[in-house]
Structure formats: structure tokens, C-alpha cells
Computed example of a mutant assay.
Amino acid sequence: MDGFELTQPRFKEYVLPNAPLEKLAEGFGWAEGPVFFGDRNELLFSDLPNNRVMRWTDAGGLSVYRASSDFENGHARDRQGRLLSCSHRGRRIHRTELDGSITSLVERYQGRRLNSPNDIVCKSDGTIWFSDPPYGIQTDYEGGKQESELPAALYRFDPRDGSLRVVADDFQGPNGLCFSPDERKLYVVETGLQFATDPLQNIRVFDVAEDGRLSGGNVFCTIAPGNADGIRCDEQGNLWSSAGDGVHCIDPAGELVGKILVPSPVANLAFGGRNNSRLFLCASHALYAIYTNVRGARLL
């Protein structure tokens, strides 16, 4: 099958040979943080080094959603349909209200500034989970050099009472994250120290208790070539991960099922489109999409 690599025969059930990879747009500094708005039939994603958020639709193509975005990276949508964003330069999580105004949600933990929130997901109970590595404040390319005040960590924020707590802090560089379809597991990407010769890089999996506490945290799998960054689950519980050669599909046991091959390294991805079965790929300087025969997991 051209454009695919089958590790297990059942990968044929997940992909469509007559639906090839499409390049939708290009010319970005580094594309990241895709999120699909089904009610508006549009994809938003970050052009991180160029400090802007882009919009793409089938009908209108590419446009700028927000210029001077405070170097936003990861995005998600909350239970009320509002955009949640990770700001590198602002070192915060903020929310775009339905009227377009912006509300800062989280900037500090125990009085100290966050590093540079990277990726974000909203659980069905309304809690907001995000990773906070120092990547965005270590270079001028993705936000601007600043001093780190906190160790890298994974956080859970509850907008109902304003509580913020560290749910895991044994990371060198926590990055992409997503819940399993039943939200009983949380997958978190470890991308390690940014300038290390041999950084620690893998995907870990945690068990999620009803009160939001995590346990476990064992290595789920390791992505090669390249490394994992953004991740998403489908309805069947398979994990789809960015990689140096495209997108890898990993089953719930941590075994590679197959690959979608992409000309450039993929940084992040999101399901969307008709029936939530179109996979949008932020691949270096370009945006791609491909129709699959699986549907992305929806929140409960």
C-alpha cells in the first residue's frame, strides 16, 4: 500500500488506499497544536515561530485566526466550546471566550511562574490538564528566553474552584497528552531535555482515578525514527502518534500496528472533519490531511 507501512495486517482496516495524503497548506515556521471545531467545520493550529494561530476550512482554505498570539502552542476545546491555549511567551493557559475576549486561567503555581505550557486537553468533567516543559523559554524562536522558576511538570486545573495541582513531576520534558476513550488512562509524551545529546524520549501511560489522581506511569512505547510529540486516541483505543517519518498507530498493548508515511516529520495531529475520521497533520512547515477508516475518540 503506497504511503503506508503495515506492521500488523489489521492496519488495512484503519486506512483507505483510495484516500491519499493531501497537502492543504505550507509556508509555516513550525506548525503545531491543531484542534478541530466541528460546529464551525474549521481547523485551528499554531504557526509557532511566526507568533500566530491559523485557520483552515474546506470552503475558505487558509487564513489567519489570530496574529500576535503570544506564541501559542497547544490547543484544546472545553466543554462549553471555548478555545483553550498554551502560551509560551505569556507562560500561561488562557481561554478565548465565545465573544472573542481572552481570559487568563493559570499563570502561577505556588507563587512562581509556569515555564511554557506546551500541550493541553480537557476531560469530560471540565478539568483542564496540561504539560509545562521549559522549551518555549529556552530559545527566542518559540517564545523568548526567560528564566525558569519551576521544574517541568504535568498539571490538572479545575476551573470550577480554581484549584491547580501537580499530577506528575517525574518528567524531564512532558509534552503531548491525551486520554483513552474511557478516560481511565492518560498517555503523556516525554521528549526529554531539549539540548541533551541523548534525551529521554518515550510515551508513558498512567491510570486515572475518579478524583484525578494518577498512578503507574510506565513506559507505554518508544517512537522511532524521530520521537513522539502530539498524540491522539481513536474510538477503539489505539494511540496515533507523531513521528519522524509520519504518524504511527499503536494498539492499547503498546504494539505498533502501522504507519502513515509523510514527507516531513510530524509534530502534532488531530482528528476532525466528517464523522471525526479525517486526520489533520502539522508536519514541520506544512499542513496535511488524510481520511482514515477510524474515528477519533470523543470525550464522554
Rank of each mutant, 00 (worst) to 15 (best):
A196P: 00
V106H: 00
L300W: 14
I223W: 05
C221K: 03
V189N: 02
R66E: 11
Q236H: 13
L21N: 07
H75T: 14
G246K: 10
G33M: 02
A76L: 07
F28R: 05
A59W: 14
S131E: 04
N238C: 13
M1F: 10
Q138W: 06
F280T: 04
G144L: 08
G176I: 07
E210T: 07
Y141K: 15
I93R: 00
P151L: 11
R79N: 11
R274Q: 15
S284D: 09
E97P: 10
S46F: 08
S241W: 03
I260P: 02
P49T: 02
S131I: 01
I231W: 01
P134R: 02
V121K: 11
D207N: 11
L16W: 14
D207C: 03
N175L: 04
S284A: 12
A270S: 14
Y187F: 15
P117G: 02
L256Q: 11
S101Q: 06
G226H: 06
D211Y: 02
Y14S: 09
N18W: 06
G226I: 01
H88W: 01
P49D: 12
D158A: 04
V121E: 14
S241L: 06
I93V: 06
I93K: 00
G38V: 12
N73K: 04
H94N: 13
R91T: 00
T127R: 13
A76I: 06
V257H: 05
G126H: 02
C233S: 11
I250N: 03
L193R: 12
G81L: 01
A228L: 10
N73Y: 00
V262T: 05
R52D: 10
K12R: 07
T57K: 08
A228Q: 14
G272H: 09
D119S: 08
L281C: 03
V188L: 15
P9K: 09
N268H: 08
I250S: 08
R91P: 01
E42V: 15
I250W: 00
A196W: 05
E210N: 13
S68F: 07
F220L: 09
E147R: 11
N18A: 11
N202Y: 09
S124E: 12
P199C: 03
A59E: 14
N202D: 07
L24I: 06
G100P: 05
F45A: 04
L269V: 10
D158M: 02
C178S: 10
S242P: 03
F130G: 01
Q8D: 05
A286M: 01
V188E: 10
V53C: 15
Q80D: 12
R232T: 14
A31W: 09
L214W: 08
N238T: 12
D47Q: 05
R274L: 15
I223M: 04
D39H: 13
V266T: 13
W56S: 01
S46N: 04
S215A: 10
P117W: 03
I203V: 15
D78R: 02
H75S: 08
V262A: 04
S284L: 11
A289C: 12
N227T: 10
L44Q: 04
L16A: 14
S284T: 13
D58Y: 09
V294W: 07
W240I: 14
S101A: 08
L299D: 09
R278C: 12
